[in-house]
Design a protein around this nucleic acid. Structure first.
Lengths: 188, 188
DNA sequence: CTCCAATCTTGCCATTGCCAAGATTGGAGG
DNA sequence: CCTCCAATCTTGGCAATGGCAAGATTGGAG
């Protein structure tokens, strides 16, 4: 709008802007339904700016996964007092941060052995394992119970996100998670 | 090897050959880790042969999803006598046919409203719902129990496939499914 | 034997991912 | 205040990709 021509060069760090554009794009078209150049146009940067900050496409997704696992670990920690609430938090995170979630559990899309990713993922895994530990009827079944609980919430999140459940059209994911978890934990 | 130059034109129907090449490629690099032209080279056809048979990339994945849901429904039907065995069959299908499975539950990759896909998916869903019906403690919880059972096996399959569980490196997915399901169903 | 529709190929173009080289900037050091 | 520099960002270019259009080949119908 200004009649004075602005510089064509950006100065601040565009890294955040590009990440946000990527998250928005993933939200709309899935983790692979967009191109780097399209992203650059969204963020109003040159077509090579993403490559400068992230190396390449899988580098960008690596950063998304790392940040995602950090946020995920935070969210699980906040609810780790009660196993049931932690399960609800798992599903809530998946639904409210679907861009992160859709990348995190598709290791073929990014460098899963990246140090930042590995650290964050292990932190989240630790919280999860700790929370699930209380669920096993006997100590010998700790591992099986952990896998069962994890599978339950992860499966619900995935089915909800990809629209396999009719409920995901208009329903409330947290309520669904709560009733499923109550049925499994308490038999009611 | 033959000294006589073969015709450069294929005659039979290449559709099957291209599908198989696609399945192999998906197996190696995930549902989006390959290109149509790479596929054509694999199947030793021209670079436009896939487009003739499937229209475009998402058309090819639509065909994969449709065939996948058919095979999936078959597999579930064969085990539908016992809920637990049906659950094991769910996981077994995911692991043994990961190419299909990886596409089926990513509707943003293909045309989910395709008639063939829709029919096959509804058939599989029917078998699943029928099998799970016996699990609810009270009739009012039928829906919740169905979602719970589905989530459990689906989550285990996903976690196993993307390597989130350490067990998936060398373990036996069917055994894992069986112990998880026994713990949830029988409490042991 | 002729012809045709289905099948498959070649040719083409805009777009993409990525690399190399150039441009611009704020800030450090004098 | 000036110079210089490293980080940041842009422009330019190339091979590969997806998809369309047009041409080639074939088995089979009549």
């Amino acid at each position: 709008m200004s009649p004075i021509k602005q510089s064509t060069y950006h100065h601040g760090n565009l890294r955040r802007a590009i990440m946000d554009a990527a998250l928005a794009a993933i939200d709309e078209s899935g983790p692979t339904g967009w191109s780097l150049r399209e992203l650059a146009r969204r963020a109003e940067v040159s077509h090579a700016a993403p490559a400068y900050h992230f190396g390449d496409k899988s580098g960008l997704l690596t950063a998304v996964a790392a940040e995602g696992y950090e946020l995920f670990a935070d969210a699980l920690e906040r609810a780790s007092d009660h196993a049931l609430e932690a399960g609800v938090a798992y599903v809530r995170f998946a639904v409210n941060h679907r861009s992160y979630f859709a990348v995190m559990f598709r290791p073929e899309l990014y460098r899963a052995d990246d140090p930042a990713v590995r650290t964050a993922r292990e932190r989240a895994g630790g919280v999860l394992a700790n929370t699930a530990r209380t669920l096993a009827p006997t100590p010998a079944q700790t591992r099986t119970a952990t896998i069962a609980a994890w599978s339950l919430v992860h499966g619900l999140a995935e089915l909800w996100l990809n629209g396999a459940l009719p409920e995901s059209a208009d329903g409330d994911p947290e309520a669904a998670a709560r009733s499923v978890l109550q049925l499994i934990f308490n038999g009611s």
